[in-house]
Structures are given as structure tokens and as C-alpha cells.
Design a protein around this nucleic acid. Structure first.
Lengths: 141, 141
DNA sequence: GCATTATTGCGACATAATTGCAATAACTGG
DNA sequence: CCAGTTATTGCAATTATGTCGCAATAATGC
């Protein structure tokens, strides 16, 4: 069992949830692909996991903090949460739809938590999407 | 005609689009309310604008840069774009659903554009959502 | 392994979004 | 300011997306 899957198994067990086949499959698709819309997820899984179960699994994963949903482009997408990947932000190319993962930046993170703190807000999470044109699209315009 | 509406009229005319009543109404609701989900928008407009026309209008507004959609909490919401309001970010309380508008912060904005630039990306737009607990919910826990 | 309990897949339902088309309203030139 | 032209609307039908109850099935603890 690969280490990622092992971690999933532990998280589930900790919360009194079982590691079922559909959950493994959903997790595997999420760990081997970029952020997915629900439909992409459902299509990738084909008939190996039922539509309803995909929704239920994603709902469970979200409530356990295994995945997070975020808005990219125009659709919301699902990706593994920071506990399974490294915290990052996203860039979406509005022309070709390319999504780029942007690595963490301490200045940025500091500004964000400062902003929350200055308003007396308790931040658990945040997400930033930068939209624009990727290098290829920008140069071919 | 109020100045906001005047601006809308100009933008539409510039793009060869007409200023129709439904478009005015949708715009008015958006300028006098916090970010709206499609359904909130549809309900607020009642039978004065048909469901389908609300979708079509929002689609048009988005393509012209009059509105932008953003994911807050778990739902998509529509708001006027930066050209009609001031640039800002959002905080969503994950307990009570409260949405707070966060005023611009130059450090933050600088970090964001730097991040994009360092990757050779052309940024046209960005959005940040901070999630957590508002003051009331944090203190009543 | 076997019993217990949670989870799944299926079909039915509910809600959200899109489309074709005839009726209507907005813009243009006179 | 009016009539002709063209885009836009409202309506009804359709499709897509998400949810639910329940019997069959699979996972866990012993």
C-alpha cells in the first residue's frame, strides 16, 4: 500500500470510518490528477463507482478535511487538502483553461493571516486564485 | 439615471449590446446587495425577470467583465466586478455563513502580483477567500 | 470465518441550468 | 417621433447536476 493511501487509511480509522473500495478509488483519482470537477471525477471513475457514492465520498472527505473544494475558472473543483499535498495556490488561464499550482510564499501567507487577524477573524483556511493568461497564451496573442 | 447605471449603459453600448429592462433590473439587484447566488438573484427579481433571462444576463455580464463569479463557502455567488465596486476580498464564516468584505491591502496585493510575475504569468484578476469563524461564532464556541 | 453494522448501487426524485422558438421590446434611420 | 429591423425575452420543454430511501453488499471486530 502506498504511503498516501496508508495515511488515508489512518485518518479514516481515527474517525471511525472504514476504508472501502470506492473511497480508495476516489482518493486515487484525486491524488493522481489535478483538481477535478465532480463530473470529471465521475467520468474518470466510470462504472467502477456509482455517481451517488462519489458525491457521498467527496462529502465525507470534505467533512474529514481530506479534500477541499475550490473555485477555479468557472467551476468548483475538488483536490486533496493541505494535509495530503503542500499548501499552495492556483493560477487559471482564462484562455486555454490550464491550471498551474503556485508554491507557497511566506510574504503572501503572512499578509493573509495579518489581514484576517486585523479584523478579529479566526482563519482556518484560505484560497487564492490568480486568473489571467499563461505564458503560451500570452505570447500567442 | 444614477451614475452606476449610466456606466452600465456605456459599457453595453461600447460592446454593441442593448440596455434592456431585465438587464437593468439584474444590475440594480447586484449593486444594492451583497454577492448573490443565482437563486437569490432569481428570487429577488421574482416574476419581473424570467429565470432563463437571469442566467443569460449574468452570462453576458460576465463575458463583458461587468460581473464576476466567486466561490464563497460552498456556493457560487455573483458580484459586480472591480470596475463597478472597489477591489476587495472576502471572508466566509463556515459556521453561520456570514460574508465579510475585506478592504484592499497594498502589501497583500503586491505579494500577489509578484507571485504571478515570478512565474511569467499575466494576471488579469485574482480572488482571495479567507475561511474561518467570525467574531461572534468564535466567541460562542 | 461469522455476525453486526456501515456503505454501496440502484432507481426515483429534486433542483439547477440550458435551449428552441414565437412574441416582444430596443435601436436605427428617416 | 415613428416604423422597420434585429436582438432579446418569456415560456415550456429538456438536460444536467445533486440527493434520497432502501434492499443488497462489503467491511470491521471478535
Amino acid at each position: 500500500m502506498n504511503p498516501e493511501l496508508k495515511k488515508l487509511s489512518e485518518v479514516l480509522k481515527n474517525k471511525g470510518q472504514s476504508l472501502t473500495n470506492p473511497r480508495k478509488l476516489v482518493f486515487e483519482v484525486l491524488s493522481s490528477h489535478k483538481p477535478q470537477t465532480m463530473n470529471e471525477l465521475i467520468n474518470l471513475l466510470g462504472k467502477s463507482v456509482d455517481r451517488a457514492s462519489v458525491y457521498r465520498t467527496v462529502g465525507l472527505f470534505e467533512s474529514l478535511g481530506i479534500t477541499q473544494r475550490l473555485a477555479l475558472g468557472w467551476k468548483y473543483k475538488i483536490e486533496l487538502s493541505d494535509a495530503f499535498t503542500h499548501h499552495h495556490h492556483h493560477f487559471s488561464c482564462m484562455k486555454c483553461g490550464l491550471i498551474i499550482t503556485l508554491q507557497d510564499n511566506s510574504d503572501l501567507e503572512a499578509s493573509i493571516s495579518l489581514l484576517a487577524k486585523s479584523q478579529g477573524l479566526t482563519m482556518t483556511d484560505h484560497q487564492l486564485e490568480i486568473r489571467g493568461l499563461c505564458q503560451d497564451c500570452a505570447s500567442s496573442t
